[in-house]
Write a protein that binds this DNA or RNA. Sequence first.
DNA 1: TAAATTTACGCAATCGATTCCGTTGCCTAT
DNA 2: ATAGGCAACGGAATCGATTGCGTAAATTTA
Lengths: 352, 352
Amino acid sequence: MKIKKEVTIYDLAKELNYSPSTISRALNNHKSISKKTIKLIKEAAEEMGYRPNNLAAGLRNNKSNTIGVLISRINRPFMASLISGIEETARKAGYNVLISQSNDKYENEISNCNALYDSRITGLVVSLSMETIDMGHFQKFIDKGIPTVFVDRVPDNFNSYKVVIDNYTAGYSATKHLIEQGCKRIAHFAGAQHRNIYEERKKGYLDALRENGLPIEEDLIIYFKTMSFEEGDKVTKKLLKMKNPPDGIFSANDTAAVSAIMCAKKMGVNVPHELAVIGFNDDPIASIVQPSLSTVSHPAAKMGAISARRILDHSGQNYDTDLSEITVLGTEIIVRDSSLKKVHALESKPSR
Amino acid sequence: MKIKKEVTIYDLAKELNYSPSTISRALNNHKSISKKTIKLIKEAAEEMGYRPNNLAAGLRNNKSNTIGVLISRINRPFMASLISGIEETARKAGYNVLISQSNDKYENEISNCNALYDSRITGLVVSLSMETIDMGHFQKFIDKGIPTVFVDRVPDNFNSYKVVIDNYTAGYSATKHLIEQGCKRIAHFAGAQHRNIYEERKKGYLDALRENGLPIEEDLIIYFKTMSFEEGDKVTKKLLKMKNPPDGIFSANDTAAVSAIMCAKKMGVNVPHELAVIGFNDDPIASIVQPSLSTVSHPAAKMGAISARRILDHSGQNYDTDLSEITVLGTEIIVRDSSLKKVHALESKPSR
DNA sequence: TAAATTTACGCAATCGATTCCGTTGCCTAT
DNA sequence: ATAGGCAACGGAATCGATTGCGTAAATTTA
């Protein structure tokens, strides 16, 4: 098989008797090139099958029109939607998207960071790995003026763009909702407390209990490692076997919440009447499980879009831009069947 | 804020009194550089904060150590796992991954194709958009000897690497399973027939009916547009209102299958006894819905890994390599509750 | 010991696009 | 008629890494 040679602006220049400078300018609609020359050159480029070489342009300009994404795992509904939002926004602006997943390992995060840096990305979007504490590997981006946007799982000791939801209020509202439904002993499935999202959700939970005169029982706060289905199942079983079991659960994610519902059903505990459950994320499984899972919805794709936009907008700015801008998005409590103890004036609309 | 200047191999050369050639060779472990020089240079590079510039290297070598991915949508469980598999394999080999989604639009597929080409990707992994029929936009990759791997949704009139599952056998087995459970009138939720996966699943369905002496009824074959939950709900309602409704459904995806289960339950039709259902993909919702959904499991991450490997392995080969190599992976029927009419010698293990 | 290798490196071109300085020709105002 | 201005384009350096070819010194071989 023969490999076709590439068509460059030099080929175009030779063919059309123009200089490479003019070809380049014409293709970029430079104002000092006449309309008809531009038209002529573009048509010839099209016809000869010319395609720009991003590597060459990137080298010259020292940037690549590429947004780097560094997340824990792609195959989580939230993350997939996040990437989707980034990709959509980036592509509309003519940017590409490089992805990498840390699998929640600190080491991988570092090496991926380097790999993305080596590709001279225009900007970086990060959702921290579970293990990450030290933020040194991100410093080189700041030093080089590469806009870095932390999203969802963000650091609290590092000055950079951030896009988050109001986890505290979400945790508070979710817990409050259970209280309003008549729950008196509400357990909390908590995630690793060094990650902002889990810490704040828990704070919201605690304050909701306090402000509504409910006691805080350490036994009812379960610290998860992975918040997996299996872990949730095990924990729920234990909780429900207590002499004085909880009558409500606020889980920091949907996976564990769903496992709680299914475990309760298996054990003959009625959801929501004996155990009301509310989760977090509004994953697809939330509307499928029965009783359907009440949860907190998370504007994942929107967060991705905003993160990408931060990077795109950063280019036009001067370097005194305030990098510490934080975007906080609202969440929404989605009330479904798993928390609906009171059958009040709620229209009986389908859960989906 | 001051922007730090980058450290290049020229800076290293000046600092260490070597030529840039030697620096470059040392960093690449070239054999003509002595061990101690390599060690010296590498340590200095580390200390001075040198980071290679992929754009420069890529321009020189005319490739970027990047795998391009072109899929319909990222936020589908199958696609997310596919990407995850690609990313993992690519990264281990020191490759980056560029993603793009077509949102099932032919036009987007073309422009994304160009964008990826312009970045001089080393190889391309594609799962075709729903609309794609003409394959012209992929020709430039072939012409340039860029390995292109079609995965899952593949063309049948284009000569290139392919990684697929045996959709025919899967469709056959799924249908056969329903027959073995005693179903006599099995409906099929079919996808767009110009996409191989849906066409073959349907063929498998038809042959299973034929070979087991069941009549084929066109009324029971529903051609979906999007295979969404809503579409599945509507279709199921219609089916179950027939004077002679089906007693089984083989759906070409899980989303529609789950909607069928939920719709049946709402209408008071017992699943599996009055209506057995089997889906396709083994999405997370499959094990959550109740009764849990029997389905065909799809090795998504593995398919991604294999696709990436095709590209990585292609480099070492000469250009007479057979590009038409096709990898066919097996599938597995996951029997859960939605299809289990007969309570036979199956251990009553939990659905998950 | 002279010749033949081998080791360890340097020179300079190269990849393709961009851009800072020009330069040329033509039009306009005085 | 001539200076001034502008439109339209060209020359050549530049971005950073790679590599074929060349060479001096060190080592081995005859």
